[in-house]
Design a protein around this nucleic acid. Sequence first.
DNA 1: CATGAATGAGAATTCATTCAT
DNA 2: CATGAATGAATTCTCATTCAT
Lengths: 210, 210, 210, 210
Amino acid sequence: MPKANPKRESRIQKISRELILIAATEVFAGRGYRGATLDQIAEQAEMSKTNLLYYYSSKEELYLATIVSTLDVWLDSLERMDPDGDPEVELKRYISEKIRFSLENPAASRLFANEVLHGAEHSRSILTRRLKVLMDDKSKALRKWMQSGKLVRVDPHNLIFIIFAATQTFADFAAQIDIVTGKSLHDKRYFAQVARDLQQVILRGIISEQ
Amino acid sequence: MPKANPKRESRIQKISRELILIAATEVFAGRGYRGATLDQIAEQAEMSKTNLLYYYSSKEELYLATIVSTLDVWLDSLERMDPDGDPEVELKRYISEKIRFSLENPAASRLFANEVLHGAEHSRSILTRRLKVLMDDKSKALRKWMQSGKLVRVDPHNLIFIIFAATQTFADFAAQIDIVTGKSLHDKRYFAQVARDLQQVILRGIISEQ
Amino acid sequence: MPKANPKRESRIQKISRELILIAATEVFAGRGYRGATLDQIAEQAEMSKTNLLYYYSSKEELYLATIVSTLDVWLDSLERMDPDGDPEVELKRYISEKIRFSLENPAASRLFANEVLHGAEHSRSILTRRLKVLMDDKSKALRKWMQSGKLVRVDPHNLIFIIFAATQTFADFAAQIDIVTGKSLHDKRYFAQVARDLQQVILRGIISEQ
Amino acid sequence: MPKANPKRESRIQKISRELILIAATEVFAGRGYRGATLDQIAEQAEMSKTNLLYYYSSKEELYLATIVSTLDVWLDSLERMDPDGDPEVELKRYISEKIRFSLENPAASRLFANEVLHGAEHSRSILTRRLKVLMDDKSKALRKWMQSGKLVRVDPHNLIFIIFAATQTFADFAAQIDIVTGKSLHDKRYFAQVARDLQQVILRGIISEQ
DNA sequence: CATGAATGAGAATTCATTCAT
DNA sequence: CATGAATGAATTCTCATTCAT
């Protein structure tokens, strides 16, 4: 039972678990928890289903592992927002990183969208521990900026949600964009345009002119 | 097969189909296509599963019917944006209607979020026909406003996506909001606050000051 | 869901459930809970496994149903022991009925032997309700006979256990008997011999001579 | 393959095989052949499953080994019944030893009960060789005692079965006893009471008064 | 000797769907 | 219209066993 002592994973274990995780993230992201099957994940990971279950002993456990393993990188860009920096600079960078992340890790991004869309039943406790804490923390930075007159006064949590939403939309709902515009974020020009538009609208919307 | 001549549905048929649709929308929205079962929908509709299948002869067909039936109302608020009106007024109203709609029809709202998130495989052609056409149309209005200097110049499609995203977030990802803020849009005060914040940020972001 | 209203079973339901129960009793008796498979039971019942699960929605539920349905007949012979009758007559009849029952319902008999042997984890509560109550009741009869000097003084519960054991042995452990003696209880002569020996030993053992 | 030359087992091999056997007896006894898993046995033996399979190359082989290894001790008390002794003394001792054995080796006791209950498919040939031979032998002693008028005339095999049954009941069906009486044979007082009752009933039942 | 890694053959369920009435 | 009965195709998970080291 490899889980017995997770600190002491052998090299091959680490690799296998990593491979599985990547495959699982992709499949779960693409079809949701219920829609994904272990068969698909095993195939994606080029591994027998039984072997997969040797590493993660249930679908649920594997799913949670994907959530946990992506949560960090997902939150990373927000995490790096510096409360002591200039809001315009910080927010510009955050938006740009966030949208870049969504583009580079579409699976991770969708994984969360799907999970949260369905009520976060699987990951509520994890999200409370990580997401809530981080957002509460960053809210303070935003509030400080608001108090010093650099940002328009809105609910800081709401502001983060709005940025979340606006940035993720382009990655998570790519199908919609493809249908409507025929374009894909993989088109570098379009990507740049989107980033610019997003930054412009959001920053204009919240930065106070003196 | 009742579908043979949909014009000639009896009264009871119409009612049954309607009941099923409502139930299906809710269940599909809550658990996704794969996650939903006909049993659940039948129970929600207070009807035997067999009977349900009498009206909609497959899960797929029923699912598509929910998409079609909700698409109209979902697009309605956008549809009513008047190209000849004042952009500030029109957009303010649009945002407020959109968020109100998401609140009042959370199921419909999530149904689409889920469908599009998963690539719109079931509904691509429908969306192309309806969503694309409408967005292309409204884009013209936006572009006109931009050209007359009333709105900042951004890609009009992107602008609509941003508004979509920002408004829907609060309905579709309610779980996230609940986790982070402990609040729900059903709390009227919070709802008003969200609407205000959204309007402020977006309108500030796109309305040009002369 | 046929279980919804068990009182209102249709004719075909009753038959199916009965057929399944018979098949299940046999298979469970022969191979134990874990050893039995739904496939085997379904085959025995000449029914698809899925259909079987339509009537009993899990293996556990089916197993409990077999326990419940056989418990009555299993306890019947003891139940009919008359506290006001003559102990010799009553016990003689009880022993003879018990062994006959074991012969005629070997599956039911073994079902219990197996269940109890493995700690009655599935049926503890049922047994408590039925078996305990009955044995407590009959113990009173035995005690009365003991007090009136008609029976030797032993613990009444123990006495019932001894009779249980002695009678069941010949049905439940038929394999042993077959191996050692080459005989089967289906051989009428042997059956009669066993019944006689049992009655003689037990009755001699407990009836007081004045 | 260590089995190749069982005489040439190293010390550590002997110990491992013994440990496995003890663990296996317990687990097989508690859950039956199908119900037991090699994982459980390996854990009980504090050994990896792979290593366990190094010593016993299949579940079946291990199971048979437990049967063989317990058969001796199980038959021991009967074996020691002396045909030249006094029947009352010999039988009294036998009963007392048998019930004590069942108490002290409940696993071994149940192992057989379970095996025989399920038709002794795994061990038929072994039982024939050992059990049958011994019982045939001891039957002669009993018959001799009957012919000399010291014992009631019943079928000697049946008599042994009855004693088997009556004594084992209290160990094998402990769950039943617990349910009905709330007592356990581990309670020394209760144990003594059971032994006394058993001896009294059986001996009264078969010893002839001159 | 000992263990970790891998696998195929089940096993219990679930679920959309069809059949008969 | 409506329902109960029946089923086959998944799907998750278990377990004995083999392979490699």
